[in-house]
Structures are given as C-alpha cells and as structure tokens.
C-alpha cells in the first residue's frame, strides 16, 4: 500500500535558522501518528509542510503527489483532501460575526469548488458532523462567544466537513482546562476510529494522546530522534532526554502520563 505521506530529507530554514533538519518518515494510510517534542522543536512547522503551507527543501509526497512540484491549482485540490486544525490560541480573535454552522460549512467551501454554492448534500454532511461532534445545539450560536474548548471542537468539525483523507491536528487540546482537554482527546480518538482518516497530531503533552494510536515520533531540535510504537517510544528515559527533565512515564489502559521524578 502506498504511504499517505512520505518525507524524504525534508528541511525547513527560516531567517538562517534550521527549523526542520533532514526529516525522513513514511506514514501509512489510516495511521495515527503522534509527534511529541518540546516547545520550539519544529512540531507546528512539520505539520505545516504537509499541506504545502510553508516552503521547504527535500521531497514530500502527500497522497501520492509531490508537494514541491505542484502547480497552485493542483495544490489547492490536494489541500481539499487534508483537514487542518491549527493552534488556535495563537490566532487573533475572529472579528467576523459567524455562527457555528457557518464555520463548519467553511469546510465544504473548498471541496464544493470555486464559485459554486453549497448544496443539500453539503448541508447534510455538516449536520452529520455537528451531530457527531455534539455541536448541533450550538449551531446557531456566534462562534466568537464560544469557550476555547468549544471553538476547538468547531474547528475539528470544520476540518471533518471536508471529509478528509488526512487530518492534521496542531495541539488540539493545548491551553484548555482539564474537562476540555479530556473531551477533545476522546473526540479525536473517536473520530480517528470512525472516519478511518490518517491522523497526524502534534503535542507536547502525553495526556492528549488517545488510546490505541499506532506510532509516536519524537522531534528534538528539528530532527526526528525516535519513531516507533507508543509502548516502545514512550519510555521514561526517552522522554527525560527529550524534555531535559527526569520524568517517569505511567501507562494506564492505553493512556500515558509523564510525571517529574522527585529530586533526591
């Protein structure tokens, strides 16, 4: 089976600083890959390379297509098959008075094609997504008045409305209270299992990994330092080295937690 995403020596350099260095990685269709790393490791940059949102050098094939050599129109068509949820806490607040339904429907805007109006089938897909993500009761509420957790859910819904083959999640549960961290984590796990999409999620917090994920990659100073199964990678010594802090990893029912070791 052809990989959903294939990196071959991909590097990103900005203002003479190497953000990503020689990344080589193959991600199979339907896989859930979690990319862990400290702040500044290059996690968001890595996720932004996949829909071709930032320039890079090297070879990157997404759904069999070489991102680097694509014309703008073809790249737009490819992006419609990729759902992307960026880090929301770093974005300016939306000034536009849109309802939750209108933001979800934005996910269909690219898919439907330029200049074509959304049809009944698009609206049915959005209704189904809102039922699935339990957003239906908020459908007519203004997006701007929602809590941070609710806004994340809306963006997950917007990305899902594309019916994507690949879902890219940039810290979907970051900067939320415990209730919402858990709600988003469980929703991400459920969506992966039910949609069959390839999911790539970056985070620095083990608690945000849903149970049953297929692989974990550790990103350290722009380099992939380890890639493998969660059982193999999420070891105390690996994470202590990654975060430069003595950590003890606890596993329970497929979920992971890292606690600082008590200093002697």
């Amino acid at each position: 089976m052809n990989p959903a995403i294939e990196f071959h020596n991909v590097s990103v350099c900005r203002a003479r600083v190497d953000i990503l260095r020689q990344i080589s990685l193959s991600i199979a269709p339907g896989e859930f890959l979690a990319v862990l790393g400290p702040n500044g490791a290059g996690k968001s940059t890595l996720i932004q390379t996949m829909p071709g949102l930032i320039p890079f050098i090297g070879d990157l094939r997404v759904l069999g297509q070489p991102i680097t050599r694509m014309a703008s129109r073809a790249l737009s068509r490819l992006r419609r098959r990729i759902g992307y949820v960026p880090q929301l806490h770093a974005r300016p607040p939306a000034a536009l008075p849109l309802s939750v339904r209108e933001v979800i429907e934005m996910g269909r805007a690219g898919v439907r094609g330029t200049g074509r109006r959304l049809n009944t089938s698009d609206r049915e897909i959005c209704d189904r997504i809102m039922e699935q993500t339990r957003l239906m009761k908020l459908a007519e509420r203004p997006y701007a008045v929602l809590s941070g957790g609710e806004q994340r859910k809306v963006h997950l819904g917007r990305a899902l409305a594309q019916e994507p083959e690949i879902l890219l999640l940039d810290e979907p549960a970051g900067h939320l209270d415990f209730h919402w961290q858990e709600a988003i984590t469980q929703l991400v796990g459920k969506l992966w299992r039910t949609t069959g999409a390839t999911v790539i999620m970056v985070t620095h917090d083990l608690r945000h990994l849903p149970p049953g994920i297929t692989r974990v990659a550790l990103l350290e100073d722009g380099r992939l330092s380890a890639v493998g199964s969660p059982e193999h990678i999420l070891q105390s010594e690996n994470l202590s080295k990654l975060y430069d802090l003595p950590l003890r990893v606890i596993e329970s029912r497929g979920r992971y937690l890292a606690l600082p070791e008590e200093s002697s």
Partner: peptide, 10 residues
C-alpha cells in the same frame, strides 16, 4: 474569517 485556514482547506 481566517486567511490561513481558508488557504489550508483548498
């Protein structure tokens, strides 16, 4: 609403 998100969704 958000130019980057619009671009990313094709």
């Amino acid at each position: 609403f958000d130019r980057d998100i619009a671009r990313a969704s094709g």
